[in-house]
Amino acid sequence: MSGAGLRFSRNLADADAIAYHLEACSTSFIPPLNERVAIPTYADKLARRAERFEAWQGDRLVGLVAIYCSDGGDAFVSNVSVLPEAARQGIGRHLVADAIAHARRCAEAMTLQVDRRAPALTLYRSVGFVPMGEDGDTLTLRLDLRRDAGCCG
């Protein structure tokens, strides 16, 4: 899959498109996503409640970042996924950057949880996330948006 015809959007995907995408990405997660959540239920929740940053190629959702923002508190990254055949093309980085830019307007920090063996850990660290806790193989990472935005010392 090449970057040709790639378009970025927000909140266009419905629950079915999200579920199809997450099923296709499930084994890219550590442990696989379908072993941790009921994908149709999770997709429906994301479609109804999350702010979604999407990458599309034609009518196919190839990348998805979903966050929850609470005014003045933390934004929580619930999902970062890119279809395996679209990986390593900068799609995830682009979507994460869009989510960070959005979160700067509604939150003081952004957090996420990731398995310490996940390849995405490199991406998160490269954009400024730092460890703030761990539980077994699960790391909680945080990005201070106030400092990152240059407003606070």
Rank of each mutant, 00 (worst) to 15 (best):
A75I: 03
V77M: 07
L143D: 00
A47M: 11
G72Y: 02
V65F: 05
F8Y: 15
R10M: 14
M1H: 11
P119Y: 12
E54S: 01
G90F: 00
R105C: 01
R147P: 01
Y124I: 01
S28F: 03
L6C: 03
R147Y: 13
Y124H: 02
R7V: 15
Q89N: 14
T111G: 00
R10Q: 15
V65L: 08
C25S: 13
A87M: 13
I91G: 03
D44A: 14
A43L: 02
E134N: 04
A120P: 11
G128W: 02
M110S: 02
Q113V: 15
L95D: 05
A149F: 13
A47T: 12
G136P: 04
Y42P: 03
I91D: 08
F76P: 08
T111S: 07
A55R: 07
V82P: 06
V65K: 11
P31H: 09
A55G: 12
A75T: 05
S26L: 11
G58C: 10
L145N: 03
C25P: 07
Y68H: 15
A101V: 07
V114Q: 01
A101Q: 14
G73Y: 05
E35K: 10
P31Q: 09
D59T: 11
A66Q: 04
R142Q: 07
I67M: 00
E134D: 03
L46M: 11
F76S: 15
A101G: 14
N79D: 14
G136M: 06
V65Q: 10
L145A: 04
G63S: 08
L83W: 08
M110R: 01
S126P: 04
C69D: 13
C69L: 03
L143P: 00
R125F: 05
A24P: 07
G150E: 10
C106R: 15
R88N: 15
N79P: 00
A66V: 01
